[in-house]
């Protein structure tokens, strides 16, 4: 079963259009939604969650229609938004009571365990917590009703590297179970590179690619060579090139690289940056 199936996701605003997005996230996998600021990541997530009305599309979450069966589906989804959304006057204890009255599967024991594990103060107001602790509280809420799908919108942005690493570890723990999946958006590509099985690149409201990370990385090399040597490479195999006085640098398809060339593995960040630059 697929955790997320999105077909022709479209939404038109005055100055922005999210255009025909197709995404598929198999169950048990993690997908990173990568895009620059304003690319449409949050809009995509809001549309998937039916927080915004779509112009056109079909969205299935955990095999069920996200609109018709929205309430039942949301029982099985944990969401962390970039600002979390918990009112500033509430402490973690009150948040737990509110969520116990919200989710049918709420597990007080699991929540208390996560609050302890994450080191979240029980009596401190949400507005007095650091951004990292706010995110951890958001994640504790998202995990305490035993969701099968986690959706995180820019959950790692603005966090220091140590907290980001902790969050990533928690997410990895979550996907140890085979039927647990994650959709996470970020513009910090390095975080997603560590975590994801699938990547989707969004640029100016359009989906540039959506595929398995390892397959994508195995298809390209980062090539450094004299300018003359680059001319021997099939132009159709060059994803991006940069020519300077020191020679040429290019991202090329692996099967087109000349023997003995100076190549190195390409990163998701390189691929994303170069694809965005090519797209203009």
């Amino acid at each position: 079963m697929n955790a997320i199936e999105v077909k022709n996701l479209t939404k038109k605003f005055k100055n922005f259009k999210l255009d025909n997005i197709d995404l598929t996230l198999p169950s048990g996998c993690i997908m990173g939604l990568i895009g620059e600021n304003g690319a449409g990541k949050s809009t995509t997530i809001k549309l998937i969650l039916d927080m915004l009305r779509r112009d056109n599309s079909e969205v299935k979450l955990l095999g069920r229609d996200a609109v018709r069966e929205g309430r039942a589906v949301r029982e099985e989804i944990g969401v962390v938004l970039d600002e979390v959304g918990i009112p500033g006057c509430l402490d973690s204890r009150k948040v737990g009571k509110i969520m116990a009255g919200t989710f049918k599967n709420w597990d007080d024991g699991a929540y208390s365990g996560l609050i302890g594990r994450f080191g979240i103060p029980k009596n401190k107001k949400f507005s007095d917590l650091s951004r990292g602790t706010k995110m951890k509280l958001g994640l504790a809420v998202a995990l305490s009703h035993h969701p099968k799908l986690l959706i995180l919108d820019e959950a790692t942005s603005g966090l220091d590297p140590v907290v980001r690493d902790e969050l990533i570890e928690m997410l990895m723990d979550f996907t140890r179970s085979e039927d647990h999946s994650i959709l996470i958006s970020s513009h910090i590509v390095s975080d997603l590179e560590k975590l994801c099985d699938y990547v989707a690149f969004l640029h100016r409201g359009r989906l540039m690619l959506s595929e398995e990370k390892d397959e994508l990385l195995s298809r390209y090399w980062f090539l450094r060579c004299p300018v003359e040597d680059l001319k021997a490479v099939d132009p159709g195999a060059i994803l991006h090139k940069k020519i300077s006085g020191y020679g040429a640098e290019a991202i090329v398809r692996r099967d087109s690289v000349p023997r003995g060339a100076d190549v190195s593995p390409v990163s998701i960040e390189d691929l994303f940056i170069y694809m965005v630059k090519e797209a203009g």
């Binding site: 809001k46 969650l49 039916d50 309430r71 029982e75 600002e83 918990i86 009112p87 500033g88 989710f103």
Partner: peptide, 18 residues
């Protein structure tokens, strides 16, 4: 107005409420 300020209005729409 407090809901809008804290973004609870958005967050609550991710929960199983109609």
């Amino acid at each position: 107005s407090y809901d809008e300020r804290s973004r609870w209005d958005e967050y609550s729409r991710t929960m199983p409420y109609s």
